[in-house]
């Protein structure tokens, strides 16, 4: 499979076979991601990080990933220090940056920014989140985590909990899980349920899915509980927020009745949707999940830069 020069804008641009191939390559990256091996797959290559919005995990794990495979990193994470503050368009910035680097990682506050950037750029553009749109590398690391924990995803029962309307990780992940043939449960207050275009996509694909407003409806049957943050600013008044946030909070009591093998994931940062006493249970996987961003992004960067992967075990 040849990924050289390819953009990573939306998970929908990839077939199931391609996704599985990326995850296979990521598995081979784990020793180097942990620092147990040293790789020099892409000597001299430069990654330009263009972060128009704040990020901790995505930015640091991309930077670590590039360095772990032998590349170098340039970039910005504060728009105020760039020409954007003087009114430069994203299109112009992209045309300039492509002359300085071999691959671009872009996070932007507007939906569709990565698709447009990819059209203007001759070097690969990796979407690290575009507004409320797609976040395909997060999706890939989520899939990697599920696949490595469960073995396969077909017919597995996966519940997505929290803000399903605005949460960008949820939309990308839903599309991908539909491709893998998982059984999906969507648990959210009515005001934060999935947008209609995502629902119509699932219906077209004949995906097996159910919508719930109460977490306890599915606790006993799910293999994965994927929890997302409910943002305060989505609610007109604080009391309504407190009510909803409380109802979707996971603590050790709410896990009574869950399968022993059930895993809890979260794209992080969490605020209080998962109590810290859950961290020590056999279910918690969110910190492992955050680490998995490194091997997955190492795999993507190696693939789009055309690295020779023959040295991987």
């Amino acid at each position: 499979m040849d990924f050289r020069g390819r953009d990573v804008v939306s998970i929908n641009d990839f077939t199931l076979e391609e996704i599985n191939y990326i995850l296979d390559v990521a598995e081979g990256m784990v020793p180097a991601a942990k620092g147990e091996e040293v790789l020099d797959l892409i000597p001299g290559k430069i990654l330009a990080m263009m972060f128009y919005e704040p990020s901790t995990r995505t930015m640091l794990s991309f930077e670590t990933a590039m360095k772990r495979i032998g590349g170098k990193v340039i970039g910005f994470s504060d728009v105020r220090a760039t020409s954007t503050a003087k009114g430069e368009t994203l299109a112009d910035t992209i045309k300039m940056v492509e002359a300085y680097a071999d691959v671009i990682v872009l996070r932007h506050d507007r939906e569709g920014a990565a698709r447009m950037a990819a059209e203007f750029s001759d070097i690969p553009v990796l979407n690290a989140g575009d507004g409320a749109g797609q976040h395909p590398t997060q999706t890939l690391l989520d899939l990697y985590t599920m696949r490595s924990e469960l073995g396969y995803l077909r017919k597995k029962s996966i519940a997505l909990v929290g803000d399903l309307k605005y949460g960008r990780t949820v939309h990308s992940l839903t599309y991908a899980l539909a491709k893998f043939g998982a059984n999906l449960h969507f648990i959210a207050p009515e005001a934060l349920q999935l947008p209609p275009e995502v629902v119509s996509h699932l219906e077209k694909r004949n995906t097996n899915f159910e919508v719930h407003e109460d977490l306890s409806d599915v606790m006993g049957e799910v293999d994965v509980l994927y929890v997302t943050r409910i943002q305060k600013e989505r609610f007109p008044d604080i009391e309504e927020y407190n009510k909803v946030a409380g109802a979707f909070r996971i603590d050790t009591d709410s896990l009574a009745g869950a399968k022993k093998s059930m895993i809890i994931m979260h794209p992080l940062p969490r605020v209080d949707e998962i109590a810290t006493d859950v961290d020590g249970t056999q279910h918690a996987r969110y910190f492992q999940q955050a680490f998995n961003g490194v091997p997955v992004r190492m795999a993507l960067l190696s693939l789009v830069l055309g690295a020779d992967l023959g040295v991987l075990k």
């Binding site: 299109a91 939906e111 569709g112 698709r115 447009m116 575009d130 749109g133 209609p196």
Partner: peptide, 25 residues
């Protein structure tokens, strides 16, 4: 940005468009 709008026609009657950039139907 210097970019034209582009939509895929996903239903013809009544017509429903999907933005190629942001994905909104």
């Amino acid at each position: 940005e210097p970019v034209s709008t582009r939509f895929k026609v996903i239903r013809k009657e009544p017509m429903v468009l999907k933005c190629v950039y942001c994905g909104r139907e």
